[in-house]
Simulated scan of single mutants.
Amino acid sequence: NWCTNASLAYTTVASSTILASTSGFFTLGIGSLAGIEKFTLIKFLTVIISVIGVFLISIKAPDENQHNPIDHLFGDSLALVGAFFYGCYTVLLKLRIQDESRINMPLFFGFVGLYNIFLLWPLFLLLHVTGVEEFQLPPDGNVWIMIMVNALVGTFLSDYLWLLSVLMTSPLVVTLGLSLTIPLALFGDYVFKGIIMNPGYWLGALLVVSGFLGVNLATIKESKREHKFTPLLIDEPVTM
């Protein structure tokens, strides 16, 4: 997340978004090496379709806050590194936990919070002392409310559902599913702000959805095939 967000300061939003969407390739590749994902041509094609869709959306979507990139190569590299680390993180969770029955979700996220408090939060003071970033408390109650709502919905709830979906499906399905946030966000701009999208956007959104549906169908067929050929274990009589 840090690499992806930091890349926005050095490169364009479109470039960062497109490179971040390549996490599907890393997830498929790393998952195949780890034995979590089965590499198939259909899955590879669905990832390509999804990335092309994100590319079309990012290029065609209006960007009111566009800026001149400071260091295009460095920013793109950060976005690519972020996509790689996301693939590693997702596959590692699936590899170590395997399914939702083997983890206590409240305990897991409780430890995540403790690690953040005792290991990461003190770094803010260090950044403040060194002058890298000034530490400030929210100025008023409205900001406090927005922070708490974002922490509950945008961080805890989204991460909770994301982890459940990783354990209940597969890392690749979830990775391509996250790409749906891009067309959905722009669709929200169309509904609430009245921004008219061009045909290139709708084509990109269709490709993103198609990629997500395609990888789901491939995963379902793969799961049915595995269950079909899984031999039943029958207790044999013990001979003395």
Rank of each mutant, 00 (worst) to 15 (best):
F39K: 08
T46P: 02
T11R: 06
I52V: 15
S32T: 13
I18Y: 00
A9R: 12
Y10F: 15
F44Q: 11
L41A: 14
T12I: 14
F44V: 08
S21Q: 08
I57C: 06
F55N: 05
V51T: 06
L19V: 15
S16G: 11
T40D: 08
T11F: 08
G53K: 06
G53R: 00
L45V: 14
T12R: 13
L19F: 13
S50N: 11
F25K: 02
E37V: 05
I18E: 00
F55E: 03
I30R: 00
I48T: 10
I30P: 00
G29I: 01
F26P: 00
L41I: 13
L41R: 15
L41C: 12
V51F: 00
V13M: 06
T40R: 05
G24P: 04
T17D: 09
I48R: 04
V54R: 02
K43W: 04
I52W: 03
T17Y: 07
T40W: 04
F25Y: 12
L8W: 09
A9S: 12
A34K: 07
G24I: 06
Y10Q: 09
L41F: 13
L19R: 01
V47R: 00
F55D: 08
S32E: 08
G29M: 03
L45P: 03
G29K: 01
V54C: 05
I18R: 03
I49F: 04
A14K: 09
S23D: 08
A34F: 09
L28Y: 06
V54A: 05
G53P: 07
E37S: 06
L56F: 15
A9L: 15
S50A: 12
L41N: 12
L8D: 10
T22S: 14
L33Q: 11
I52H: 08
I30L: 06
I36E: 02
I18N: 04
F26D: 02
V51R: 01
E37M: 05
T40A: 09
F39P: 05
L45Q: 14
L28A: 10
I36W: 03
T27C: 09
T11S: 15
A14C: 14
A9Y: 12
G35R: 15
S50F: 01
S16P: 04
S21E: 02
G31T: 02
Y10K: 11
L56K: 09
I49V: 12
V54D: 00
I52K: 04
I30W: 00
F25I: 12
